[in-house]
Amino acid sequence: MGPFFFGSSRRRLFGVYTPAVELEAPPGAVVLCQPWGTEYIHAHRAIVRLGEALSRTRFHVLRFDYYGSGDSGGDFAEVDLEGWRSDIRTAADECLSMSGASRVSLVGLRIGANLAADVARDLADLDALVVWNPIVDGAAYASVTTPARRRDPVGLRPRRRPASHGPDIVKVLGSPLGEELAAELRQVGLAPILQAGAERTLIVGSGEPADRAALRRTLSDRSGPTLDYVENDDVPAWLDGHPGYALPISTIDTIRRWL
């Protein structure tokens, strides 16, 4: 396993490459596409564990941070969805180059799933696509704010109103971002996933029953290429305080076996 920076000097991306353990089998390459904001922080352990599980088989795995997030270069204010899509393409090229594999699979969680599906539509070397609890309703996703935790002050002092971030800044998932990105996020949905064009696509629904139901409902209305859909009664690893901070072991195992 090795942490490193890749990409260009203007758009440095942080990644961790984990080579496959099984060297006899034909090598596979997987790029893991992270969630964003607080979901990124909470899901990090699960993504690390997924990468380890895949690398214990025939997969060389690259997980990375989008520009302006995690350890990558840039700032919140510099990000947009097209930039993140280009980051996934860069990561896919890097993973193919490092691994020597001829094709690469994309596995994404939450917004990472939607972005991976967008990229999958025109990625020439795509092997398979796994979308794990993608954003079903971008408007709802973009409206989720995480102000100060509600269990704070115990009444010693009236709480003042949160400080303003200015008219062009709203808070989504605890991270400030421009109105442009917020507008982009509101447009995110399942449609690109349903037309992703991968030879093989797995959709995983886990976490809260309501989330799974929304995903199932949307998928049942669609027509188009065959998709595999698996539902797991697993912890929503991307949420703060999910039960016992447990890892979504069933989902990780599902993805490993399917790939």
């Binding site: 995480t146 102000p147 100060a148 003042r160 400080a163 808070k171 400030p176």
Partner: peptide, 13 residues
């Protein structure tokens, strides 16, 4: 840091 929450969710904080 007045009115900041424990995880400093607000950018100003």
């Amino acid at each position: 840091l007045h009115d900041a929450d424990h995880l400093l969710s607000r950018r100003d904080d």
